[in-house]
Design a protein around this nucleic acid. Structure first.
Length: 291
DNA sequence: AAACATTCCTGCACGC
DNA sequence: TGCGTGCAGGAATGTT
């Protein structure tokens, strides 16, 4: 479930753990992740020292000395796990694809059961041009946008607002859980067309995007199934979810059963009462042929 | 055992 | 009719 709050939680913990630490050696599993083979990583990481980690959307940028960056994405089930010097890593862990041993005895491992994650070392100067990052939209915490800006970005879009929020080219970092939560809190029907939302609806969406993300970060993210922090602990925001994974259960605001629908192949949860659709014109594109 | 948090790629449909 | 864009669906994989 790593979406922005989960990745940011891991980043903040990495910021306390890795800067200044030097890699003694790195080992990789034989398996490849979704994007690439890992065979070059041990050589690329050897003797490098980690700097302050950064994040853009759901991507982690682990800067190294010498002008390189370890670019990482957690995919569905990726985890970064850390042990300080003197603490033995759990040798029984399975699906560990990268094991970094630091010179001072600390350890940093990347575990990914489903292997949808990404690990790549590339020159820091080339990051902005890399295909993975080039198309990302603004990060909603680093560069929050107001309702008018979001509305302008969505002008003409005929896709639903839920699917629009999931598009990483528009906003970098929202995933399936928080898209549903944002729309519930904004009182917007997830089926409405993004290009048709009025300014007031966009204003509420723009307010709730950073609000939901910050509240989740404060609780170290949502553990829906596999996400863990750097210390292998679950996040606590799941208890605060208002609609996600609550199909059939009463809306916490009005009691109406929460509905589950599928949009673009993914589950959407919403309250049909609190997020009522404005009546839409039956013909979205009025014909002008006869007046 | 159907569903699944992620991104990427394909192919279709639409608008100009 | 042709071209570019936007969008839906499927794939990748292992677990519950």
């Amino acid at each position: 479930m790593p979406e922005l709050p989960e990745v940011e939680t891991v980043r903040r913990m990495l910021a306390e753990a890795v800067p200044g630490r030097r890699v003694a050696r790195a080992n990789v599993s034989g398996k490849r992740l979704r994007t690439s083979s890992l065979v070059r990583l041990p050589t690329q990481l050897r003797a490098r020292t980690f700097a302050m980690p950064r994040r853009i959307g759901k991507f982690l940028l682990l800067d190294l000395d010498g002008g390189f960056t370890l670019l990482s994405h957690l995919g569905m089930s990726g985890r970064w796990l850390f042990w300080p010097p003197g603490r033995k890593p759990d040798a029984a862990l399975e699906h560990v694809h990268l094991k970094i041993a630091f010179a001072d005895g600390a350890a940093l491992w990347f575990q990914d059961v489903r292997r949808f994650g990404m690990l790549r070392v590339l020159p820091t100067a080339k990051l902005a041009r890399d295909a993975s990052l080039r198309l990302l939209g603004p990060d909603p915490l680093a560069e929050p946008r107001d309702g008018d800006a979001l509305r302008a970005a969505a002008r003409g879009s005929r896709t639903s607002i839920k699917v629009w929020l999931l598009d990483q080219r528009r906003i970098a970092g929202l995933g399936n859980i928080y898209a549903s939560e944002v729309l519930f809190r904004a009182g917007v029907d997830p089926r409405r067309r993004a290009g048709a939302l009025d300014a007031e609806a966009w204003r509420r969406v723009a307010r709730e995007v950073p609000a939901v993300l910050e509240e989740s970060i404060a609780r170290m993210g949502t553990t829906f199934s596999s996400y863990r922090t750097l210390w292998n602990e679950p996040g606590q925001y799941g208890e605060q979810l208002l609609v996600y994974d609550r199909g059939g259960e009463p809306c916490r605001s009005c009691g109406t059963p929460v509905r589950r629908i599928v949009q673009a192949g993914r589950s959407t949860y919403f309250c049909p009462t609190c997020q009522r659709a404005r009546p839409r014109r039956s013909s979205p594109r009025p014909r002008l042929s006869n007046r």
